[in-house]
Write a protein that binds this DNA or RNA. Structure first.
Length: 1097
RNA sequence: GCUGAAGUGGUGGAAUUGGUAGACACGCUGGACUUAAAAUCCAGUGGACAGUAAUGUCCGUACGGGUUCAAGUCCCGUCUUCAGUACCA
C-alpha cells in the first residue's frame, strides 16, 4: 500500500517530519482522508481506455450536441479562465447523458493563427512544430480536469485533412452567386445561362445590382477573359481592389472586427487605409437574412443586439442631387445620398461628400482645385486612429460646385468634409443642419445658412434631432405633417421625378479574406493571364509549402512568395517549382500550362466557420461530413463560449452555414440553436511602484518640433538625492536634460539601429537602457532648456514620476508583499531601480483586476489548483464563483469551502468516527479507520422520511438549476443536502445512491469512485438521472410568517389544510397578535394560504 | 452620445410568480480536541440602540418618489459602475 503522505497524522508522515526536523515547508496539500490525486488519475485513465464518452453516429437514442468554442492553442497554456465554459458545458453534457441522450461533446483546436507565426519569425521554428507542442500541453491540462470529451473526433484547423474542406468550401463560394430576388445562393453556371439568354438587364432591374448592363448578344461576344471579369462581380468570393485596413507592423490586412479603437486587436499596432487587390467574401448580400435569422435563436438579447448593430440596418431613402457647374447642368453627374430622414429634405442647405469620394475630382471648380487638393492630402495623411481622435475638430473645404435640390430646384453648395465616411452609404450626405448635430456644427463653422423646418422648435443653440412628436414646417407640400407621413410623401415625390427612392442600407461590409501571412490555409487558386482559376476539388488539399523564413519577401510579397515549389502544373495537376512557370504573357514564350499559385492565405475565421459540422463525421475523407451524420446530429443544441466572438466568428459561421444550406450541402441554415456566453475570469494583477523618468527625443530642426521617440528609464537612484525624492511632487513641471553630447550621439546611433526593425532591436533596447542608466549625469533645469542644445536631436527627459510595473503574481504573498529579490532576478533590468517601500521597509504591490493574460503576469494555472485541491474541487469552485455569464475576478478565497464539502460528501459514505472515538484513538488509528476500504458503510435499510425529503428537494432544485444554467446555486444545494444528511446520520443507499448520480456531472471523479464502491462495474455516466417525486415533499404543517402592516413579527405553525377563516381565527387568538395590536382593532386581515398572513392595523 | 447589463453584509453571492431579505460559502470571533500547530467539529456573525439576560425597538437591497395589505422584485425620475458600439447620415 502507498504510504499515506497526505494524511499528516499517519506514521509515515510523522516519521518523515521527524527526519527532516520540521524543516520542510508545509506541503501545499490539504490533509484529507479523501485521496483525490489517486482517484482522479484512476478514473481519467478508465474513461480514456473504455472510450466512455464516445458518441455513436448510429443510435436509437435522441441526440444532443453540446459544443465549446474551440481554443487557439497558445504557448502560454490554459489559465483558470479557459475551463469555465468547458466545465459548464461538461456538466450539461453529462446531465444529458444521464437523461438518456446520445451526447456529442467534442473538442478541437483552432490552430492556424498569428501568434504561432510571430513566434516562428522570432525563433525560426516551424509553426507546425510549436503548434503541435502547444496542443500537447493543452491536451494534458484539459485531461486533468476530467472533461467528458469524445476525443476520437478531435479536429485541428491546421491539419491538411481538415483544411482540405475549408479550401473546398472556398471553391463552392467562388462557384456561386446570390440572387437578391429569391434571397438564395445558386451555382454560377445558372447565372451564365441567364447571361447567355438575356444578358444582365433583367437582373439589374430586379435585384438592384449596379453592374454595367449588357445584352445576351454582348455577353456571347465577350472574350473569355472579359466574361470572367464580369463574373467576379457576382461570385460570393471575389478578387477586387478594395480599400483595406493595412497594418504595417503585422504586415497584413485586417478585417473590421480585428480592429479595436483604430489599432489592431493583436499587438495594438496602428492601422491605415490602403487600396489592395484582395479576396473578399460577399457577406453583405446575406445581411437581411443574418438579421432575420436572429429572431429564432435562443441567444442572449445583448449578443443579438451586438449583431444587429454590426449589421446596422437603416431604412430611409436615396436622394439624387444633380451637379450644376458654372450654371450649366453636367449631364450624368449626380451625387447620390442616403438619408433616414427624407422628411427633412426641405432643410437641406448643402451637401457634404467624403474626401475619398471619386466625384471630388470631377466636380471641383478650377478656382477651388488647389485648396481641395491640399485638404485631400492632409486628410489622407491621418491614420484611422488620428481621425477618430480628431472628432472634435471640424474640417472641410468647398468644392466650388453646386447641385440642384431635387424638389425645390434651388442650388445647394457641395462641400468636402471628413466627417463623412467613404465606407458608409454612398459616401455623401444631404446636410440638414437644423436636424443633425454634425451638419449643424459644420454649417456654423463654415458660415453656411441654416434653415429651420420644424414647427415651434428653437435651433439657435443646437440641432433638433427628435423625430417623434415633431411637426414639419416651411416645407411646401409636407408642412404640417409628422415624420412618418412627411417621409412617405417625399419618397413618393422623389420616385415620381426619378430623383430617389425608398432604400435600405446596411453597415455590414464585405469581409476581406486574404491575409499576407504564412500560417493559414492556402487558397486553391492559381493565376492564368492575371485571372484567378480554381484548382479542381479532387486535387485538394493544397498543402502549405515549406519556406526558410516566415517574413514577407524583399519585393513585399507575402511569405509564400519565398516558396520554391509554389506553381501549379495543369498538365499533371500537381504543385511544381516556380521556375517552370509559363511565360506566355511575354512574346516569344509558349504557354506550358504551369501557373503561379496564390500567395495569400486565408484568415483565422475560415477554419472556425464550419468546424461544428466536421465533428459530426470527423474522419470522413470523401465529404466534409456525411449526409447520414448531419441528418442525425443536425446542428449544435448548446454552444458555450465568450462574447468576444459576437461580430467575428459568430457572424461569419452563420454566413457560411446559410450559404452551404442554400447550395444543398446542409439541411439547417443556423449552426447554433442555443448560445451561452460565459463571463470572463479576470486576474488580479500586481503592480510594483518605482521612481523613474522618460526620455524623449525631439527633432529641433523641425518646426513645430517633432517628437520622434520616447524611452523609459528604469532607475532614478543615481540622480536623485533623498531630499529630492521627498520633494518629488514639486518636481512635476521640471525637465531633465542630458548635456553630454558624446553620450547623446551614441544613444542616437543605437536608436537608428533599433529603428531598422530587425530582430536585434530588443537586445539593443536592453543594452542602451542598462549601460547608460547608471552613468547618466543630469541636472535639473527650469523650462526653456531647448536653447542649450546644439545637436540635431535634443534629448529631453520628461518629468520624474512614479511608474508602475507588472510583477508576477507568484512573487506576491497573501498580504500583498513582494519578494523583491525574486522580482529583480526575474527582471534584471530593474536591478538598480528605486522601488517605493512601505514605512516598515517592505515592498507592497497594489492590485488591479484585469483580463488574465501572460503579458500581465497575473495568470493562474489550473494545474496548480488540481495539484492542491483536485479537479472536482476546481470544477465545483469555478461554478460556485457566481453566475456563469458574469465576469468575475479569480480568487482562491473560498475554495476550501468547496473542498471540505467534497470531503464531507466522502465521509457520508464511510463509518463516521465519533468524537468519543476520536479522543480515545491515536491520530494514526483515526486516519486508518476513516480511509480504508472496510469503513465503507452504506446500509440497505429504508431511509428516514427526512432524508428522503432532503434528497427529493435536492433533485428538484439541481435539475432546475442545470436547465437554467444556474450552476452556482446548485453547488449550494449540494452543500445544504450534505449538511442535512450528515446531521441526519444518513447511511441509506436509497438516498445516497441517487445523490451520487446527481453530483456526478459536477464532481465526476469522486462520484465514479463511490459508485464503484457501491458495487457497480459500469461507469456512473450510464446511470439514469434520479426522478423527482413530489410526494416526499408534501407537508401537513406550515410555519406561517405573521406580519403587521407588512412587517414580519413572529411565525406560527399551522396545518396546511386550514381554510382562510380558520387561519385568521387561529392567528387572531394568538397571544402575540394581541400584544402587537396593542388594543387596536385590525382594519383588514390578508390571509394567503400556504404563504403569509398580514394584519393591517 | 447611443445600446445592453448591473448596483444587496467585511467578501463572492442567494432570494424561481410581489409574500419571513442576506441561502450557501469565505472571512472574522469564541469554544472543543491537542504539549503545540494543522486538520476536524460546535456556536455566533447586516447595522444602531435598550436590557444582567431571555428578548425588544428602530434602520436596512445605489438615491428620490409612486403603486400595493405587502416591493430587492412592478412603475416614474436621478446617480454610479461594467460591457459593447460610434462622425452610420
Amino acid at each position: 500500500m502507498q504510504p499515506n503522505y497526505f494524511d499528516k497524522n499517519s506514521d509515515f508522515k510523522r516519521n518523515r517530519l521527524f527526519e527532516l526536523m520540521l524543516k520542510i515547508p508545509e506541503p501545499a496539500i490539504n490533509m484529507s482522508n479523501y485521496h483525490f490525486n489517486n482517484i482522479e488519475a484512476k478514473w481519467q485513465k478508465y474513461w480514456a481506455e473504455n472510450q466512455t464518452f464516445k458518441a455513436e453516429n448510429n443510435s436509437e437514442k435522441p441526440k444532443y450536441y453540446v459544443l465549446d468554442m474551440f481554443p487557439y492553442p497558445s504557448g502560454a497554456g490554459l489559465h483558470v479562465g479557459h475551463p469555465l465554459g468547458y466545465i459548464a458545458s461538461d456538466i450539461y453534457a453529462r446531465y444529458k447523458r444521464h437523461q438518456g441522450f446520445n451526447v456529442l461533446h467534442p473538442q478541437g483546436y483552432d490552430s492556424f493563427g498569428l501568434p504561432a507565426e510571430q513566434y516562428a519569425i522570432q525563433t525560426g521554428q516551424h509553426p507546425a512544430k510549436t503548434t503541435k507542442e502547444n496542443i500537447a500541453r493543452y491536451r494534458e491540462q484539459l485531461d486533468r480536469i476530467g472533461f467528458s470529451f469524445d476525443w476520437s473526433r478531435e479536429v485541428r484547423t491546421s491539419d491538411p485533412s481538415y483544411y482540405k474542406w475549408t479550401q473546398w468550401i472556398f471553391i463552392q463560394l467562388f462557384e456561386s452567386w446570390y440572387c437578391n430576388v429569391l434571397e438564395q445562393s445558386f451555382p454560377i453556371s445558372e447565372l451564365i445561362d441567364i447571361f447567355e439568354e438575356e444578358g444582365n438587364m433583367g437582373l439589374n432591374a430586379k435585384c438592384g445590382n449596379n453592374q454595367p448592363e449588357f445584352s445576351a448578344e454582348m455577353w456571347n461576344s465577350f472574350s473569355e477573359e472579359k466574361k470572367q471579369k464580369v463574373l467576379l462581380n457576382y461570385r460570393l468570393t471575389y478578387l477586387a481592389e478594395t480599400e483595406v485596413n493595412w497594418c504595417p507592423q503585422l504586415g497584413t490586412v485586417l478585417a473590421n472586427d480585428e480592429i479595436v479603437n483604430g489599432v489592431s486587436e493583436r499587438g495594438g499596432f496602428p492601422v491605415i487605409k490602403k487600396k489592395m487587390i484582395q479576396w473578399s467574401m460577399r457577406i453583405s448580400v446575406f445581411a437581411e437574412r443574418l438579421l432575420q435569422g436572429l429572431e429564432n435563436l435562443d441567444w442572449s438579447e445583448s449578443l443579438k443586439e451586438t449583431q444587429r448593430n454590426w449589421i446596422g440596418k437603416s431604412v430611409g431613402a436615396s436622394v439624387e442631387f444633380r451637379v450644376v457647374n458654372e450654371k450649366e447642368e453636367f449631364q450624368g453627374i449626380a451625387i447620390k445620398t442616403f438619408t433616414t430622414r427624407p422628411d427633412t429634405i426641405y432643410g437641406v442647405t448643402f451637401l457634404t461628400i467624403a474626401p475619398e469620394n471619386e466625384l471630388v475630382d470631377k466636380i471641383t471648380t478650377i478656382e477651388q482645385r488647389i485648396e481641395v487638393a491640399k485638404y485631400i492630402t492632409e486628410t489622407a495623411k491621418k491614420s484611422e486612429r488620428e481621425r477618430l481622435a480628431d472628432v472634435k475638430n471640424i474640417t472641410g473645404v468647398f468644392t466650388g460646385a453646386y447641385a440642384k435640390h431635387p424638389l425645390t430646384k434651388e442650388l445647394v453648395p457641395i462641400w468636402i468634409g471628413d466627417y463623412v465616411l467613404a465606407s458608409y452609404g454612398t459616401g455623401a450626405v444631404m446636410a440638414v443642419p437644423c436636424g443633425d448635430q454634425r451638419d449643424y456644427d459644420f454649417a456654423k463653422h463654415f458660415d453656411i445658412p441654416i434653415k429651420n423646418i420644424f414647427e415651434g422648435v428653437d435651433i439657435s443653440e443646437a440641432a433638433h434631432s427628435d423625430k417623434e412628436g415633431t411637426i414639419i414646417a416651411n416645407s411646401d407640400f409636407i408642412s404640417g405633417y409628422s415624420y412618418k407621413d412627411a417621409s412617405d410623401k417625399v419618397i413618393e415625390a422623389l420616385e415620381k421625378n426619378h430623383r430617389g427612392k425608398k432604400e435600405i442600407n446596411y453597415r455590414l461590409r464585405d469581409a476581406v479574406f486574404s491575409r499576407q501571412r504564412y500560417w493559414g490555409e492556402p487558397f486553391p487558386v492559381y493565376y492564368k493571364n492575371g485571372l484567378p482559376q480554381m484548382i479542381d476539388a479532387k486535387y485538394l488539399p493544397i498543402r502549405l509549402p515549406e519556406i526558410e523564413k516566415y517574413l514577407p519577401t524583399e519585393t513585399g510579397e507575402p511569405p509564400l512568395g519565398r516558396a520554391d515549389n509554389w506553381a501549379w502544373d495543369t498538365n499533371i495537376n500537381t504543385i511544381v517549382s516556380n521556375k517552370l512557370v509559363s511565360k506566355s504573357e511575354i512574346e516569344g514564350y509558349e504557354d506550358n500550362g504551369i501557373y503561379p499559385l496564390e500567395l495569400n492565405t486565408m484568415p483565422g475565421w475560415a477554419g472556425s466557420s464550419w468546424y461544428m459540422f466536421r465533428y459530426m463525421d470527423a474522419l470522413n475523407n470523401d465529404e466534409f461530413a456525411s449526409k447520414e451524420a448531419m441528418d442525425y446530429w443536425v446542428n449544435v443544441d448548446l454552444y458555450i463560449g465568450g462574447s468576444e466572438h459576437a461580430t467575428g466568428h459568430l457572424l461569419y459561421s452563420r454566413f457560411w452555414v446559410k450559404f452551404l444550406h442554400d447550395r444543398g450541402f446542409l439541411s439547417v441554415d443556423e449552426p447554433f440553436k442555443k448560445l451561452i456566453n460565459q463571463g470572463m475570469i479576470l486576474g488580479e494583477s500586481a503592480f510594483v511602484h518605482r521612481l523613474g523618468f522618460n526620455i524623449t527625443f525631439w527633432d529641433i530642426n523641425q518646426n513645430p518640433k517633432h517628437k520622434t521617440k520616447t524611452i523609459s528609464m528604469f532607475g532614478a537612484s543615481s540622480i536623485l538625492t533623498i531630499e529630492e525624492k521627498r520633494g518629488l511632487s514639486k518636481l512635476q513641471d521640471k525637465y531633465v536634460i542630458i548635456e553630454d553630447k558624446f553620450f547623446s550621439a551614441e544613444l542616437i546611433e543605437h536608436f537608428k539601429k533599433r529603428n531598422d526593425g530587425n530582430d536585434e532591436s530588443e537586445k539593443y533596447r536592453r543594452e542602451v537602457e542598462n549601460k547608460y542608466m547608471s552613468i547618466l549625469k543630469v541636472e535639473l533645469e527650469e523650462q526653456g532648456v531647448l536653447d542649450k542644445v546644439r545637436l540635431d536631436f535634443a534629448l529631453i527627459g520628461s518629468k520624474y514620476n512614479f511608474y508602475r510595473t507588472h510583477a508576477d503574481v507568484s512573487f506576491v504573498n497573501t498580504s500583498n508583499e513582494l519578494d523583491i529579490e525574486a522580482f529583480k532576478n526575474w527582471r534584471p533590468e530593474f536591478k538598480d531601480a528605486e522601488f517605493i517601500t512601505e514605512e516598515d521597509g517592505t515592498f507592497k504591490v497594489s492590485r488591479e483586476v484585469e483580463k488574465m493574460s501572460k503579458s500581465k503576469y497575473n495568470v493562474v494555472n489550473p494545474d496548480d489548483i488540481c495539484n492542491q485541491y483536485g479537479a472536482d474541487t476546481l470544477r465545483m469552485y469555478e461554478m460556485f464563483l457566481g453566475p456563469l455569464e458574469q465576469a468575475k475576478p479569480w480568487s482562491t478565497a473560498g475554495i476550501t469551502g468547496v473542498h471540505s464539502f467534497l470531503k464531507k460528501m466522502w465521509r457520508l459514505f464511510h463509518t463516521p468516527v465519533t468524537d468519543t472515538e476520536r479522543r480515545t484513538l491515536s491520530g494514526a488509528e483515526v486516519s486508518r479507520s476513516e480511509s480504508e476500504e472496510n469503513t465503507f458503510n452504506i446500509s440497505e435499510n429504508p431511509a428516514s422520511k427526512d432524508s428522503l425529503k432532503t434528497l427529493h428537494k435536492t433533485i428538484k432544485k439541481v435539475q432546475e438549476d442545470i436547465e437554467n444554467f444556474s450552476f452556482n446555486t446548485s453547488v449550494s444545494t449540494f452543500m445544504i443536502a450534505v449538511n442535512e444528511l450528515t446531521a441526519q446520520k444518513c447511511t441509506s443507499k436509497e438516498v445516497l445512491e441517487p445523490l451520487l448520480v446527481l453530483l456526478s456531472p459536477y464532481a465526476p471523479h469522486i462520484a465514479e469512485e463511490l459508485w464503484n464502491k457501491l458495487g457497480y462495474s459500469e461507469s456512473i455516466s450510464t446511470a439514469a438521472f434520479p426522478k423527482f417525486e413530489e410526494k416526499f415533499l408534501v407537508e401537513s404543517m406550515k410555519k406561517y410568517p405573521i406580519s403587521f402592516n407588512g412587517k414580519m413579527r413572529f411565525t406560527m405553525e399551522l396545518p396546511l389544510d386550514l381554510s382562510k377563516d380558520e387561519i385568521e381565527a387561529a392567528v387572531m387568538s394568538h397571544e402575540k397578535t394581541i400584544h402587537y395590536l396593542e388594543g387596536r382593532t385590525p382594519k383588514k386581515v390578508i390571509v394567503v394560504p400556504g404563504k403569509i398572513v398580514n394584519i393591517v392595523g
